[in-house]
């Protein structure tokens, strides 16, 4: 099977003055089309840096990212990002925020009316069509994140990058949004790369979980295959032995073998 997205021997070193910090060391990962892959690790292990490298927002020191066998090293709508803190532009309405990306990506291929319909279609995918004329300050945190997801989806990305998308939300909203993302993945079959630090979230949503060791010089410690049948139901999984086993594996990795060192 040909890799769809390939992270090829990525190293990342930050240099400030004389001090150099090696953040990522020799990251190799291949992701197939339609796969949902999570990257989990303690804070400071460089998982966000890795996502930024895939997005093209940060350059890798060595190695590179291949998408459909072509190297990508600058940001673009084919790798749309859902940012942790939603990053909606506060002076635009919900509709205009989504439209910003749509207008650029489909400037030549869709007519004005088609683009408008496409924006509304994506807003209704995340159940936000009713708030089209609201500004980000007028909607809740969970709704903002929904719009952020709609903005990314509307660019029809080859890979959807989620940077701790539910991190800033309360537990109930988070569960609700996780179900939405799961349903969208089921329906649209996107390839998704998600950063998270929530074990349950990783097991619930992913096909594979990439566990990273602690920084500096973080590397991929272990990759866990989550072979639970889809569609997955949160309540049924709570007692599912397969789910519990996966959860156990990740917890052991994070808290026994690579427990977080406070003074790292």
């Amino acid at each position: 099977m040909q890799a769809y997205l390939k992270l090829d021997h990525i190293d990342k070193t930050f240099t400030r003055g004389n001090a150099t910090t090696e953040v990522l060391k020799d990251i190799n990962l291949t992701i197939e089309k339609g796969e949902y892959v999570s990257i989990i690790g303690h804070s400071g292990c460089g998982k966000s840096t890795l996502l930024n490298i895939v997005a093209g927002l940060t350059g890798a020191t060595n190695g590179g990212v291949l998408l459909e066998n072509r190297e990508v090293n600058s940001p673009g709508p084919d790798r749309a990002v859902v940012f942790q803190n939603h990053s909606l532009l506060p002076w635009l309405t919900v509709y205009e925020n989504v439209k910003l990306g749509v207008d650029k990506v489909f400037a030549k291929t869709k007519s004005r009316a088609e683009r408008d319909a496409w924006v509304m279609h994506n807003l209704s995918l995340v159940q936000m069509a009713h708030a089209r004329d609201k500004r980000p300050s007028e909607i809740s945190g969970g709704m903002k994140q929904r719009v952020g997801i709609a903005r990314a989806l509307a660019m029809e990305p080859k890979v959807l990058l989620l940077d701790e998308p539910f991190g800033a939300l309360d537990a109930l909203t988070r569960a609700h949004l996780q179900d939405s993302v799961m349903a969208l993945h089921q329906k649209l079959g996107n390839t998704i790369l998600m950063i998270t630090h929530d074990v349950d979230e990783a097991v619930l949503l992913s096909d594979r979980i990439v566990m990273m060791t602690n920084g500096p010089s973080a590397r991929i410690g272990e990759v866990l295959e989550v072979s639970l049948a889809r569609p997955r139901k949160r309540l049924e999984l709570a007692t599912n032995p397969g789910y519990l086993k996966c959860r156990q594996r990740v917890l052991e990795f994070l808290y026994e073998r690579h427990s977080f060192v406070e003074a790292a």
């Binding site: 997005a55 709508p77 990002v81 532009l89 650029k104 990506v105």
Partner: peptide
């Protein structure tokens, strides 16, 4: 920086 990132991803 978030707004700059958005602009970069959208390729303004």
């Amino acid at each position: 920086q978030d707004y700059r990132n958005v602009a970069a991803v959208v390729q303004l």
